[in-house]
Design a protein around this nucleic acid. Structure first.
Lengths: 191, 191
DNA sequence: TGGTACATGTAACATGTTACATGATTAG
DNA sequence: CTAATCATGTAACATGTTACATGTACCA
């Protein structure tokens, strides 16, 4: 068995994505960060540090090779055959469940300890952020639809998601103590 | 300034949640894991290891104190005044944006490299998981509504979310190449 | 007395974040 | 010439995951 430098253990999703972008041609770390930000940044985050680290590890495993350094110390990498195979193996594996970490939900679930005005401030800031995101997604959709149906499908998830969040935010006052219905009762009882 | 053992740096959300649960009375690590799983597990994950580590750190910072060891080496912790203050400080801070890491979206965005049958298998497994979750949420809602409006509000987010995901999954065949409309065309052209 | 659920923890590792340090190139 | 942008990287730390190790108490 000639060991081609640890094709063994499975890739993590971040590393695999980098390989995926490299399928389109050689890219430097900097490029990859920009590409990732743009293409998967909405549902998969990564940092510069991480990218450089993964590139080093991928090179060591023989899944990519460093090309000739260009202008500004630009270090391009390109896929090897092993890298292509590793990417395909990753892609073919059943994806795990999504992970959501939602600080607002966490704080709301401790809502009994939270002053209503603060709660309201959180929610309102949150609503602004989400309606901005929805608007941005809707703006981008038509263009993407023509260019790349896969990206458009993924963006459509984002639109569904943001819409659901906004709808939930609308419901909140009726669900929470001190919300609209309670206030209506308070007004009706002549407070 | 009497330094009360580093009340300084802000808590992370996981540690803060543990403090939040301890507001309801002394709990052991084991209890806290179970409570967290049940109460915030759907939108905030944590592991046993992490909990024990955080408990150690919180005790060192003077935010909790270890009580007397009970049966089965059970080690209960309770909040200190500093712990209460730290929890309130965390709760009052503006929550950051949610983070979503969605492996299926990642793989779909590389959809051009994915065989349609595999894509279909991913989506179908995903759909099953999400409809099960939605059903579970809907089942739990009435009970929670009476018990804890905050938990119910948070669960309602989950219901909105799962509904949105399922709706998106329904849309997918029309968005992706080789989807239902394409198939209809193929059938019409007599394949 | 044997299995299951309870209970705690460590070690090793993987992943992710933040701050720092350095320098090249380009546009004005 | 100088500010902004491009480009790479390290160090330190925080967070999260997995596997391992140990033992108790309850129930059948």
């Amino acid at each position: 068995m000639s060991t081609p430098a640890a094709t063994d253990k499975p890739l993590n999703a971040t590393a695999a994505s980098l390989l995926g972008f490299l399928l389109e041609g050689p890219r430097s770390g900097w490029d990859l960060v920009a590409t990732a930000e743009q293409r998967i940044g909405n549902f998969w985050s990564l940092t510069r540090s991480q990218v450089y680290r993964e590139l080093g590890a991928l090179a060591e495993r023989g899944l990519i090779t460093a090309g000739m350094v260009g202008a500004r110390d630009r270090q391009p990498y390109e896929l090897t055959a092993a890298g292509r195979a590793a990417f395909q193996a990753w892609l073919a594996a059943q994806p795990g469940p999504e992970q959501i970490r939602y600080p607002l939900l966490l704080k709301l679930s401790f809502g009994r300890h939270l002053a209503p005005e603060q709660r309201a401030a959180f929610i309102s800031a949150h609503r602004d952020a989400h309606s901005a995101k929805l608007a941005a997604y809707n703006k981008r959709l038509p263009e993407l639809r023509a260019q790349d149906p896969y990206a458009a499908a993924v963006l459509t998830f984002g639109i569904n998601y943001e819409t659901a969040v906004l709808r939930w935010l609308d419901q909140l006052p009726d669900l929470l103590p001190g919300g609209s219905s309670t206030q209506a009762v308070a007004r009706a009882s002549g407070a």
